[in-house]
Simulated assay, not measured.
Amino acid sequence: MKKAETNTPITLKQIALKVGVSNIAVGHVLLGSGKKTVRVSEKTAERIRQVAAEMNYRPNLIARQLAGKGSNIIGVVIDTCAPEIHFKLLSEMERLAGLKNYRFMVGQTHNDISKINQYREDFASRGVDGIICMAHQDPDRGHEVFAAYSSFKNVVFIGKPLLDNNDSYYVSSDYREGMSKAVDHLCTQKCKRIGLLLLSTRTKAMEFRLEGFELGLKNHGFEKKHDLVEYIGLPGQISIKSLEPYILRLVHDHSVDGILACNDMIAAMAVRILQTNGLKVPEQVRVIGYDNVDWAGLFNPGITTLDQNYMQMSKLAIELLWAQINNQKIERKQRCVMVPPTLVVRQSA
């Protein structure tokens, strides 16, 4: 008869016996003990990690904390309605953290401050070593989220906080530079009137896009035209039907020959609306998106867009958090990192 499985935790000694090394070597690899006195080859360390995974080993959190060790857990809170690019950021950051033997504990919600505070308490009770906050951009609740999470010792925000005390750590796409680059490109393509499509969210990301748009126009000698900026609705509530009046107003009432969209989905909808109404893209109207999502190059025509360089942003965010966890000195100007987007030119512009 097969012996019933038990929930008895796997110990370092069991792993050491299976690998054929000392308990001290296993503790060094899995718990970070004896950093200055223990030496383990990378080949042996990889074998220890492999066996630990096979045996479903989990560190004893209480024992680690009593020994003055970290939990090797990073808490992450993310808005469920965040742009697609944020979930790619989350995936890449989790991969990079895994290379340092850290695991993610993720909480998701949308504009629910009670849940956000609950996640904060969960992170504190689990003794997480650091936090990555991706849910602080709501203009009504962002200040509360920032106040709640900035009190943690090791925190990195993705996107500039609404309330920045100049002492926070954050990594953000440089939306101003991105939109300015997009205007530059349309101007080199002889566009004379450029329209902008923004979400009606009042977030910093939308605000910075508008500032970049206006800066780009100014650099090319164009006046700011508020009637060429359309606020098209909230995330999740925009369809081709709801967007069509804004596009037709820009084209028929204001004779735009270039359109900048706040993301690639809006850009793709704009292209379809223009085509359905007998307008050729890019011959009559050029369209640029933002984010460079995976399907942007497969669309017909391929969407010209701004790539936020999420892999670089992920790497910088983990490095900032890692530096805090390890008590490394970071100059104030290095705590706030703006990553310039890259213009990806395709057929739509």
Rank of each mutant, 00 (worst) to 15 (best):
Q324C: 04
G221C: 09
A270G: 09
L343T: 06
R64V: 02
V337P: 04
I273N: 05
T8H: 12
S41E: 06
I325Q: 03
L30P: 01
L17M: 09
A182S: 13
L89G: 13
R39Y: 11
P83C: 09
T44I: 09
T109C: 13
V281R: 07
K115C: 11
L31M: 12
L248I: 13
L316R: 10
N56C: 09
F157R: 06
I131R: 12
V40W: 11
V106K: 08
H28V: 05
L89P: 03
L274R: 03
L260Q: 01
A317Y: 02
S173W: 00
T37C: 02
I247A: 08
E5R: 09
R64L: 07
Q50R: 11
L274H: 00
L31G: 11
H143E: 15
T276Y: 08
L197D: 10
A67P: 10
I24V: 15
D184N: 14
G107A: 13
G142A: 07
S242V: 08
V287R: 02
F208T: 07
G75P: 07
I62D: 14
I74T: 09
I232S: 06
D227P: 12
E319N: 14
V38A: 04
E5F: 04
A52T: 05
N60A: 02
N56M: 10
D253L: 07
Q334M: 11
I24M: 15
E214D: 15
L343Q: 04
K204T: 15
I238F: 09
T188C: 06
H252T: 05
L279I: 15
Q137A: 14
K224G: 06
K224A: 13
K36D: 15
I73H: 08
N292L: 01
L163R: 09
S33P: 00
F299Q: 08
S151L: 12
M338P: 00
A296I: 00
D253G: 04
H86R: 10
G178N: 01
L260W: 05
G195L: 07
L99W: 04
S22P: 06
L320Y: 02
I238D: 11
N292D: 15
A97R: 06
Q324S: 01
C133S: 11
Q14G: 13
G258V: 04
L30W: 04
V51W: 10
K100C: 10
S125W: 14
H220L: 07
D264P: 07
G98C: 03
N117P: 02
E244P: 06
P83A: 12
S180K: 15
E144G: 08
V339G: 02
C133K: 00
L61N: 14
A147D: 14
H220N: 09
L90K: 04
Y231M: 11
R176G: 11
Q237V: 00
I318M: 08
Y119K: 02
I113F: 10
E223K: 09
E42A: 13
D291G: 00
L274P: 01
A148G: 10
P301R: 01
D129L: 03
S255P: 01
R286M: 10
H226P: 10
D257Y: 00
Q324I: 01
Q65C: 05
S242D: 10
W295E: 07
V51E: 15
V251R: 12
S200C: 06
P245N: 00
A124H: 06
G27F: 02
V345Q: 08
L234E: 15
H136N: 07
K224N: 12
M93P: 02
G107V: 05
V171C: 09
Y310V: 13
S91F: 06
L228M: 13
R39Q: 12
N166Y: 04
I24S: 14
N60S: 07
